[in-house]
Write a protein that binds this DNA or RNA. Structure first.
Length: 346
DNA sequence: TATCCGTGGCT
DNA sequence: TAGCCAAGGAT
């Protein structure tokens, strides 16, 4: 048997039962693919179920408020996925009368949908022959063919895409695409792949040449930048102040507290530059409490966050463009994991 | 083209 | 344990 036949045979015997595999509804396929971008099945599964429950159809999603979509997305990360998801639902409602486009080029043109996701939707929903090339596919092909071209180089992307187009089973593209990704996720894993018991262990060139552990090759390493966040958690008896993050920065569209970012850690409250909160200095009855330092790791940033809790009589006197809310109602707003951790003292 | 954009699990 | 990496896409 050839590569794709063996793969599909393996898939039939080993595949997981996942909810988006029991449908060809392009809305559900699209939703699952957006959720699963750079995200493990275990992490995304419950979000998928929540979304389907809250938004059974693309029209339900289109008619929702973005804030509700972000709230349901809270904790999943890469929040532009949620914003683009909502935007695209509205776009399809308006331009396609709520019916998902069936043409590859039109699918690819949707916001938040790149080559991988367009191929996934086209094949899984419409059984069109477009090969998916995701992290799993790069790994499986790099190892089976012992290819050391960096997968994050222009040449590498071109090579692997061409190879994927040769290998896809044109009679059965949907199942082939599922199979190669599932094989990468369960069998040909990044660390400790199960080569001892593998359908390809007599044909895999990287195994033969002892290159399994170094493939696939990536050339770019992301460098992590340190940032120091000083959150001002104002509160009176009932209220606190929160802010919507509208800047081009992390967590766009989510809410957090008034923030003073510094280039190094601040240890004393007096050292903070409280320009827009000058009135604080005139208040005699304020109490200030400093939190521990929260370390929050993102893919490309290391956030050092200190929360300064400032208790005053009437919160309105320090309010500028912040949103004044009942303390307990902060749980209704979409917030980053860091803020959630602080609220629940994790 | 290189960089930005989250979170959590794994070794 | 510090780094790697996961069903990527936008700019």
């Amino acid at each position: 048997m050839d590569f794709s036949s063996l793969l599909i045979k393996w898939y039939k015997e080993n595949k997981r039962d996942l909810p988006w595999r029991n449908t060809t509804d392009p809305y559900k396929i699209w939703l699952s693919e957006i959720i699963l971008q750079q995200t493990r099945v275990d992490q995304g599964l419950n979000y998928y179920l929540k979304f389907i429950e809250n938004f059974p159809t693309i029209i339900d999603l289109a008619n929702s408020k973005e804030e509700k979509v972000l709230k349901l997305w809270q904790g999943l990360g890469y929040y532009s996925r949620a914003r683009n998801l909502h935007f695209t639902a509205k776009y399809i409602q308006k331009n396609y009368n709520g019916t998902f486009p069936v043409n590859y080029k039109e699918i690819l043109a949707l916001k938040g949908v790149g080559e991988y996701t367009a191929a996934a939707i086209s094949s899984f929903s419409f059984n069109m022959s477009y090969p998916v090339v995701d992290g799993n596919v790069y790994r499986v092909l790099a190892r089976f063919f012992d290819i050391n071209t960096p997968i994050d180089s222009t040449l590498g992307k071109k090579e692997f895409k061409a190879l994927a187009e040769e290998l896809i089973d044109k009679k059965n593209p949907a199942e082939y695409n599922q199979a190669i990704m599932e094989f990468g996720a369960l069998q040909c894993k990044p660390k400790q792949p199960n080569c001892e018991n593998c359908i390809f262990n007599s044909k895999c060139l990287a195994l033969k040449n002892d290159n399994i552990s170094i493939l696939p090759i990536k050339e770019k390493k992301t460098k992590v930048k340190n940032r120091f966040f000083n959150y001002l958690v104002f509160s009176d008896k009932k209220h606190t102040l929160i802010k919507n993050r509208t800047e081009k920065d992390i967590w766009q569209g989510l809410f957090d507290f008034p923030l003073i970012e510094t280039v190094k850690p601040i240890h004393q409250f007096e050292k903070l530059n409280l320009e827009q909160y000058k009135i604080l200095n005139t208040l005699t009855d304020k109490s200030i409490q400093k939190s521990i330092e929260y370390i929050h790791i993102l893919s490309h940033q290391k956030i050092h966050a200190t929360f300064w809790s400032i208790q005053i009589d009437d919160i309105s006197c320090v309010q500028n463009d912040e949103l004044k809310i009942i303390k307990e109602e902060i749980v209704k707003y979409p917030v980053p994991k860091l803020i959630e951790n602080f609220i629940f003292k994790k």
